[in-house]
Simulated assay, not measured.
Amino acid sequence: MSLQQKVDISREIQRITLAHGSGGVAMRDLVENEIVTAFSNPHLDALEDQARIDLRELTAFGDQLAMTTDSFVVDPLEFPGGDIGTLAVNGTVNDLAMCGAKPRHLTCGLIIEEGLSLDTLRRILSSMKKAADIAGVTIVSGDTKVVHKGAADKLFINTSGIGVIPEQTDISASGAQVGDVVIVNGWVGDHGATIMASREDLSLDTQLQSDCRPLYSEVNALLKSSAVHCLRDATRGGIATVLNEFADSSDVRIVLDQSAIPVRDEVRGVCELLGLDPLYLANEGKFVAVVPASDAENALRALKQCPGAENACVIGRVEAVTELRSYAGVSMKTTFGSERMIDMLTGDQLPRIC
């Protein structure tokens, strides 16, 4: 065998091939040596087709089970502040946290395109493990599929999660009441602006980073300090979409104050360059909460003590539907003193964002 042939074989070994999804030796080696090793825990190490979880472990935290699933197809796979792996973990645990649930366990399904670098896969698995440890969850079961080159874009991840909702916790999109205030837990639009800047290779003086992080600790602090009527993480569609969902489900008007909405100058710059609106940009570490006005001060004080939520603030209020404003919806008082409607996003500002 020539030296060049040896080099070609070495390179092939360092990439995912169809054999890694065949159910044979190569797949076993990939699962056991890379995936199980990365996520190692007693549930996963058993290598059964399912994870077996003691119900007593769950009921110790509450009386309702929360379950969610999500798929992640971000482009690029790796970006400042995170990668598709951190998105998969944090996106799923945050969906659980938005009903007050304490996240406990995740599953992980990998759809891998033939030819993906094994080093890239290892980095993403490592970041998933790190994100899971920070969020306090374990990845207990999963699945791996390999598809032909061109049938996917490098790597897609599906994660499902379960968590436990404490007793007497009832949060829903239909809970907004007239007189409530709207709170956001920090800077808006960081993730969407970061992904687009990475795609377009924009040169910025200050490096933007995704806000991808777990939010349960902030939600827990909020619940201990205030009644919470509505709560949702502002991912695809941004805070504008979340608030329209609240307004429609609760049959109320939500009025925002543009000057109060926290947006970084760098995010504004990206939006101006590309014709985007920060209200519709995706976030991966931000939620929108609707709380009674009487609890707002306590809620903000509790949030600002949480790392990452130091810029939490009130950005709007909930008003009644009246004869003058005869339908539920969202509007914004602009810095020029006028008022404009904030509709649901039509189309997709940024495809493949998460």
Results as ranks from 00 to 15, higher is better:
Leu3Asp: 07
Lys6Gly: 01
Ile13Gln: 01
His20Phe: 01
Gly23Ser: 01
Gly24Tyr: 05
Val25Cys: 00
Met27Gln: 15
Val36Leu: 08
Ala38Gln: 03
Phe39Ala: 03
Leu44Asp: 03
Arg56Thr: 13
Phe61Lys: 02
Gln64Met: 10
Ala66Gly: 11
Val73Tyr: 15
Pro80Cys: 00
Ile84Gly: 10
Gly85Pro: 12
Gly85Ile: 00
Leu87Trp: 02
Asn90Glu: 01
Gly100Tyr: 08
Leu106Ser: 07
Glu113Asn: 08
Ser127Gly: 12
Lys129Gly: 12
Gly136Gln: 00
Ile139Val: 15
Val140Phe: 01
Ser141Gln: 12
Thr144Lys: 13
Ala151Gly: 13
Ile157Asp: 02
Asn158Glu: 09
Asn158Ser: 15
Asn158Pro: 09
Ile162Ala: 07
Thr169Asn: 11
Gln177Asp: 00
Gly179Lys: 03
Asp180Gly: 09
Val182Ala: 05
Asn185Tyr: 05
Ile195Lys: 10
Met196Ala: 08
Gln207His: 13
Leu208Asn: 04
Pro214Gln: 11
Arg232Ala: 15
Ala234Asn: 10
Ala240Ile: 04
Ala240Val: 05
Thr241Ala: 09
Thr241Lys: 08
Leu243Cys: 02
Leu243Glu: 02
Ser249Gln: 14
Val255Thr: 15
Leu256Arg: 05
Asp257Thr: 13
Ala260Glu: 06
Val263Met: 08
Asn283Ile: 00
Gly285Asp: 05
Asn298Gly: 14
Gln305Glu: 09
Cys306Ser: 09
Ala309Glu: 00
Glu310Gln: 15
Ser326Asp: 15
Ala328Tyr: 14
Gly329Lys: 14
Gly329Asp: 09
Ser338Pro: 03
Leu345Phe: 06
Leu350Ser: 10
Leu350Ile: 15
